[in-house]
Amino acid sequence: MKETRYIFAIKEAMEEEMDRDENVFLIGEDVGLAGGSFGASKGLYEKFGPERVVDTPISELGFTSLAAGAASCGLRPIVEIMFMDFVTCAMDSIVNQIAKMRYMFGNQYTVPVVVRMPEGGGLNAGPQHSQCLEAWFAHVPGLKVVMAATPHDVKGLLKASIRDDNPVIFIENKTLHAMKGMAADAEDDVVLPLGKADVKLQGSDVTIVTASRMVHESLKAAKILEQEGISAEVVDLMTIQPWDRQTVFESVAKTHRLVVAHEAVKQFGFGAEIAAAAAEEIMDELDAPIMRVGAPFAPASYSLEKYYVPSADNVVSAVKSTLERTL
């Protein structure tokens, strides 16, 4: 293990996988000569050349579908979408093509495409550069959706995603890019399992299910709550689709209270799915209504962003709210 930053851990994961498998290549806007618009591929162009670190025109649909075709022919593309908001231009490619190619063609093809993209607010980048759209992809059969919260996790999950034979939507968070933390060395080749959550903090009074940046806000909230004698368990889903029901339900069976926290707009976010599944399957374990934390139902405002993006305070309020109530 060594200390690194989240953005470097992404680079290391890609580099190690490209070293391991010559069919892995990176494609996207500014990924080559420029080293990635957030620097995720710095040095890869120099090391692997323009054949494997492929700069593209500004054409998300075109290069994402191109990756689908290349994957059908045995390659393993990593597509970088500069901001998650821009993936909307590639929705035909991801939803109609990539997600369905295996199933609709009767399992003749495997389409191991990883589409990486950073989401979230924090840069005052406004309505078209701040969205969290993971729930859209989690709603589409055929895709996996991964969200990583730490340098260690982003590296291990990205390596797993690249090796997975299914298409994976790999969601980073812009405010985490600079985050420092430990990550595995190349020799250790740590590959984290997809579909497995990680309990980031053990607790007994309430379960907070979360992912990506909100893992850190939830941990901050747990600290605040601890001072008031409330013990929160923080479950980092890491994979949104398929999500780890077992870990979540076991945690709720222990704490009997559930809060789901994500940065995305609260309405129809992944929290709704988890809350609904808990209500359907483990209602008898719950002592209080399930609470959700998410952004207001509005686009991210350039000037009001700090009130828009959910924080630890929102998690604290949600936890207190569920603790004050009973079923």
Binding site: S65, G69, A70, C73, L75, S93, N96
Partner: peptide, 20 residues
């Protein structure tokens, strides 16, 4: 079923041929 949808996919097959 998506008009034009297959065109960049074929480009991907061509890319794979060139890559290999």
């Amino acid at each position: 079923g998506i008009v034009g949808g297959g065109i960049p996919i074929a480009a991907g097959a061509a890319f794979a041929a060139q890559y290999k």
